[in-house]
Amino acid sequence: MKIPVLRLGAILLTSIQVDLTDTEVMQFQADVLSVIAETEGRGLAIDITALEVVDSFMARTINDTASMARLLGAEVVVCGMRPAVALTLVEMGRELIGVETTFNLDDGLARLQRKIAQRGDNALAASGSS
């Protein structure tokens, strides 16, 4: 199951809608990072609205992907975590440390645009295209 990475101007948008195996999670990470590098995307939004179970491996991979994306030069937000998923992660002792989260994709895109603007990539953030 390949997760599409969509390009919205300088922002890359991806949504995890299905159960992924660990191998697919790693593939997702590699795909996202290569698209960021290729397109020089300034922001990455990972939508997890549809995810019912975020196990420790998935949580770690999301964390790692965010760190790597930031190293490449992109800002990252994780959008739409379900309340029960948040409860489960905290109960497990596994918070998504260091990853910014927003209620939904709308907020996520707004947050990314703000962060990109703060970095001085004003043209990119304002026009929404590169």
């Binding site: 019912e52 029960a84 409860l87």
Partner: peptide, 17 residues
């Protein structure tokens, strides 16, 4: 409840993994 179900499903995932 949804929370209990997710707790269970996540634990099962960890054990199976």
């Amino acid at each position: 409840s949804r929370t209990d179900a997710y707790h269970l499903a996540t634990a099962v995932t960890e054990l199976a993994a």
